[in-house]
Structures are given as C-alpha cells and as structure tokens.
Nucleic acid binder design. Structure first.
Lengths: 382, 382
DNA sequence: GAAAATTATTGAGACGTCTCAAAAATCATG
DNA sequence: CATGATTTTTGAGACGTCTCAATAATTTTC
C-alpha cells in the first residue's frame, strides 16, 4: 500500500505539507493542495499515519520509532526527540488494535453488573464501585467493557469474552456460593477478581470484600448503647454469602449481649421498596414489636421508612431505623447507615486483578475491609 | 513459530490428539501425553488454536477456513462442514483483535455516563437506557466501553478513543448547547449518536430524544383537569436543553389555559434531594402557594415528597405532586410521573449509530419520541 | 590510535485474520 | 469430449505494531 512518503514524493512536497493538505489542518496554497490531492488519488492513498510514516519523516527505521514512542532507554535522547517531533508533526495516533495483536493483550477488563431482568439492578454502592474501578483502570491505561450476563449460563458469556481475546480479565460482583462463573473462570485459568468472597467457604480466588457481619454488629452494638433490647432485622432471603453474613452479624451481636431473639423480628424480603414496606409491617405488628429496626440492604431502608411514615411512627423515638450502604437517600433522610469504604476498595481490587492478569499475584490477593457506621438522627434520641 | 501440526507430527499423533493432550480435555494415555508434551516443549509451542491449525486439520487452505467460518457462500457446503468440524475438534476461538486489525474496526462503542464528580450521577433512566443500549449492541455483536469524561476537556478523551481505534463510535448523553464533544466529534467526522438533541438549535447530528416540553405539558394538562389553577414547578437552573424544554412546556401549557404564572411558584434547584426539599419549602411558603407541584427531574420528587411529609401535607388533597422519569420510587410512592419510552428509544439509537458508523445513515437519524403520563394517586382526588 | 567493549539503530518477521487475484476443479454446451 | 463458463479453492499479502538478532556507531581502554 502507498505510504504518505510516496504521496509526498509524487507531489514534490515535504511529507508534513502533504499531511497538512490531506488533513486539512493548515492553509496550503491551492496549487500545492491540488497536486497532493491528485497524488493521493492516483495512489489510492487514504490518510492514516503509522509509525512507518514517522520513520520516513524522521529518517530512522520503523523499529526505532516504536522504541522511541514507548520510551525505551535503548534510544538516544536526540533520536527520541526527532521521532516525537515527527509524530507530532503528523498528528500520529497509536493503533491500539495493532499493538494488542502483537502483544497479545486487550487492555480491557470486563464487568457485568447488568444481570438481565433483575429489577433491583440499580444500586448506589455498585454504581460508585464501578466508577472507581473504571478510574483505577484508566490510570493503568485499561478500559472497562460492560456486558450483559444472562440469568442462566452466564459463565459461557465470560468464557467467550476471554477466549476471543476481547478482555484480559474480569471484575465480578454479587458472588454466590459455588458461583458457576468462578468455577469456570478458575477452570480455564482466566484472570479475575471479585467484589465479595470472604464469606464464601474455602474461597481461593482473588477478592476484596467488606465485612458485612461486622457491619451489622456495629449497628446492633450502637442500638444497644442507645438502650434498645428488642431489635428487628430486614434482610434478603438466605442463600447469598454477603446477605447471610449480615444476618449472622445480627445474631452474633444479640447473642453476645445476652439478648433473646424473636424470630418474628426478622423478615426476609427482596430488596425492593414495596416488599420491604410489607415486611416492615409484618415485623412491627408482631406481638412484642421491636423498638429498633435494621435494614440490611439499601432499598429496604426507604421501604421501611415509608411504612413508618404511613403509620405516623417517628424516628428515633417510636422506632429507631438503621440501614446499609450509606447512600445519598439515607444521608438526606438522616438515617444511620453502614458505610463501605468503596474509595479504598475499588483501586485495591483493580490492583489485585492486574496481578492476576500479569501472573504476578499480589501478596494480599484476598482483602477484607472494615465497614464503619455513620450515625444519624434516626437512631439517636435527643 | 511452531504450529499444532508441527507438534503433532513430531509426536507421531493426530492433531486432535495433540490438542487434547495440551488442552487436558480428554484422557490420553500417559505415554502419548508425554511424547506430545515433549514435542511441544522442544518446539517451544504454546497452545493457541488459529485458523491455520484448522486448515491443517481439515486439509484446506487458510483462506478457505476464514471464508467458511464467516459463512461466505463461496464455499461448498461439504467443505464448510469439514472446516466447522475441525474447528470444533480443536475448540477454536476467533481472535477478535486480529480480525479488528484486518478489518479496521473495533466492534466497540464508547459511552461515558460517568461525569467525574457529578453527585447526581446515578439515575434510573440513564441506567435503564445504558442497559438497553448494551443489549441492542450485543445483538449486533458490538460491545460497550465505558469511560470517564473529565469535567473539562472531555472532548479530548473522546478524540483519543476514536483516534486510537479503541472504539468505532460513541453514544453520548446529557447534551448541552454548543456541546464541545459534539463540535469536536463532528469536526473529526467521528460517528456518534446522542440521547437528546431535539431542543438544541440547528442540531444536525444524529439523535433520539423524548419531547420533554410535551412531557410537562401532559402533566400540566392533567393537573388542570383535576381542577388545579395554581401549579408550581421545580426544575434545574436554566442552561440545559432538556431542562429548558421542560420549563417551556410548563409555561406553554399554563399560557394555553389562560392561567397566570407567578414566578414564586417556580424554583430552580440542583437535582439533589436536600436542595429540592429546600426549594419546595420556598415554593410552598410563597404568598399564594401552588396547590399542585411538578418536579421536572427525578430526584426532586423525593426531595419534595419528603418536605411535604415533614409539613404533614397530604397528597393529593393538600398538594398534588407529579414527577419525571417514572422511576421505581415514584411507582412505590404512588406519584404521577412522566414516562420516557426507553425501551423503544435505546435500540433505535443504537441502530442510528450503526448507520453513522457504517456510513449508511438512516433515513430518520433524528427521532423524537413522545412521552406519556403515568397517573397515580398523588394527583387524583378521590 | 587500534582493539575491545558498549551503546544505538536497523531490518526483518511475527501476531491472526481477511480478501484479492490467480489457479484449479467442476459443470454445461454443442 | 473439447471448449468455455462457472464454481470453488488456493496462496500470498496486508493491516500496524513490537521485538529479536544483527549491524553500525560510539566510547572506553591500553
């Protein structure tokens, strides 16, 4: 194929002038422009600056250009400068696809937070998490590819993405017990790192997590301090590690305080406003209703709050209310909540993933972060 | 570099056996395994099945393999089948990077919904929108790359992504007047399609939009029917097309009804719970406060609702309340809201983008969808 | 100032795919 | 069955980059 140099020579102009004409980036006199255009036409040349063009302009070999652009210290400073100048003059941009083919990497990691048909998809923590992971990735010149995982057979989607070299690895969240994605990715030795895993028995994959058991313990302890003895819990139906851990935290803390638990104080509900509201009704109309209520998942808090409003039950005096995830709604409504340190956790997770991808596993490839409690008026009597 | 065929020949085994040994996918007797492993070792071969391996196994030329795999009708059915069988036997996976380099495309479109440091980033409609766009993209074998655009100089990030062949085009949202991203992308002829644009003067780029002016008109008309004459509006500060359109809808509908507007009924506020709540206070304590309040942006609704709760003002009798975007919270709280047809709009937008990318612009590359009104108890007196 | 050691540059080839022009095989026609 | 027309397959080359081994230029050493 014709190169820019060929066009320039055919048109009797310097390469950078030819570039400017074809690029339209500077005013070149009409006669020259016409000549260049004609030359490009006859050579069937379409403007796309490559390292070869830079080499031609700088008068070096194409290998030199590659080294220089990649800051290799093989290259003498003057030469590097010459190359950089030529690259700038021609408005060079690296073709990432070509690099990726040569270096056998994608520079992309996959993340699926969109579980098809899950109504409670949107979530403050995950949203923030993925934003921060993206930021961490971009700092390392990686990008994030988002994709949809079907309800069943999700593991095959992951496998395809990695097998076709679309991505170098994955971030996964919402880890389940015996998660098929983890089984499959481990089996084919695909790099990945999970958000969640410390309560998955015998987990030997890379993860970061926030200790949800501890999180709820913090809440219970705080409520105990406030003088509550009858404390209720809204949580998901058992079966997910992070959810079960939170329930365990509740039971542990109550037990440690020597307080009996009435099962009627506990309601299992989907993390949906309406269902949570109904569950609150159920708990609050038990024989000896709780004086404080913990919502172990974000949307439940608003559902519960709404029920309390309807019944004219005031926080914190009629019922103390605490939630999870410390989202803006909780902050606005003045509701005590467990905060997860996403700002620290997300970059850590990406670094761990990089270790997995580059086969240089980090010392700490399983990290448990501690949550903290943000106390607000919803639980503090004045 | 050594191919699988070389390994197989050196080890005196059929290619598929060599594959199975190296892949660990079937139990091969120890002696054979050892021989294959040694052959691979001595040839410094690492397993990576390419079309050349398939060609070797199927006994055809590599070009034939490519045609066959791509369902070209140049190839005779039997030959195609032979190739497909060989591909299956070797567990072949296409290397997308290589294809992309050759065909000069990325198979990826970029989308940035993460505007750094924007506190109101999370948003039901955008979340749903991006999910549906992803689904539409995947149906066409495209993927979505998400990236962060800085507060200033965002256009350069877009330019880099396209110039390095990372993406084939962009979906953009939150379009502003004289949006620098649009200016830049248009200037460099980068394909993109926007969510929003019908209220951008002289817009000549591809977009889909939902008529926000019409949306608020629907709300006003509905409230008029319910007998309201003093109607308030919470909206963003002027300066964004979609926001200004909604305000215009309010003014138009009121005017059409011959009703005077008091400026004290209108409050400009960020789309944040706390600020919206304060704005509601401001409007509701005006001299002749409105009997109905329209929130033109999603989060404002909950902010307003919260203020009304605090003041013990009941919907719909004390104040009628209507919102925008029909998110699950509005549904749960029984709040009338304007619904945007995202389910139709997202696939349409992606199709338009495909047209831009493939230089086959769609007939209708600017589409305005009509919103509809979901009426709920918050505005309907019993 | 010549030889040796070091540093800098070169040029070719490979990554895996697609696609073109050319060659081969098959089919139709008289 | 020879010829031409058509269908099918082949083989080479290109996409743009990186990187290795080889060469060239420079510096050091005696």
């Amino acid at each position: 194929m014709a190169k820019l140099k060929d066009v320039a020579e055919l048109a009797y102009v310097p390469m950078d002038v030819a570039f400017q004409v074809l690029n339209g980036s500077a005013d070149i006199d009409a006669e020259t422009s016409r000549r260049v255009a004609k030359a490009a036409e006859s050579l069937n040349y379409s403007l796309r600056i490559t390292q070869i063009d830079i080499a031609d302009l700088a008068g070096v070999a194409k290998g030199t250009v590659s080294y220089a652009l990649n800051d290799s210290d093989l290259i003498k400073p003057e030469t590097r400068q010459k190359v950089l100048d030529a690259a700038a003059a021609l408005g060079y941009n690296l073709n990432i696809t070509a690099r990726n083919l040569r270096t056998n990497r994608a520079g992309v990691v996959g993340y699926s937070w969109h579980v098809a048909d899950d109504p409670s998809r949107m979530n403050y923590v995950l949203d923030r998490f993925i934003y921060l992971v993206t930021a961490a990735a971009e700092a390392q010149h990686y990008h994030l590819l988002t994709f949809i995982q079907p309800q069943s057979g999700a593991d095959r989607v992951y496998e395809t993405l990695i097998a076709t070299s679309r991505v170098d690895g994955f971030i996964i969240s919402d880890v389940a017990y015996d998660d098929p994605r983890i089984a499959r990715l481990s089996a084919i030795k695909a790099p990945f790192a999970a958000f969640g895993g410390m309560y998955v028995p015998d987990a030997d994959f890379a993860y970061v997590d926030v200790d949800g058991k501890r999180g709820i313990e913090l809440v219970v302890d705080h409520l105990l301090e406030q003088g509550h003895e009858r404390i209720g819990l809204l949580t998901r139906h058992p079966g997910l590690p992070f959810s079960d851990a939170r329930e365990a935290g509740y039971r542990t803390a109550m037990q440690r305080a020597g307080l009996p638990i009435q099962e009627a104080w506990i309601a299992y509900t989907p993390n949906i406003l309406g269902a949570a509201s109904a569950a609150t009704h159920q708990v609050m109309t038990a024989k000896h209703p709780p004086t404080a209520l913990i919502c172990a998942h974000d949307l439940m808090t608003l559902g519960a709050k709404s029920y309390l409003d309807d019944q004219d039950l005031k926080m914190p005096d009629d019922v103390a209310l605490a939630g999870y995830d410390d989202d803006p709604t909780s902050a606005f409504l003045g509701i005590t909540s467990v905060r997860q340190p996403i700002e620290e956790l997300a970059p850590a997770l990406f670094d761990i993933l990089l270790g997995e991808i580059n086969q240089t596993p980090r010392e700490a490839r399983q990290i448990a972060f501690a949550p903290d409690l943000v106390v607000r008026p919803s639980t503090v009597r004045r």
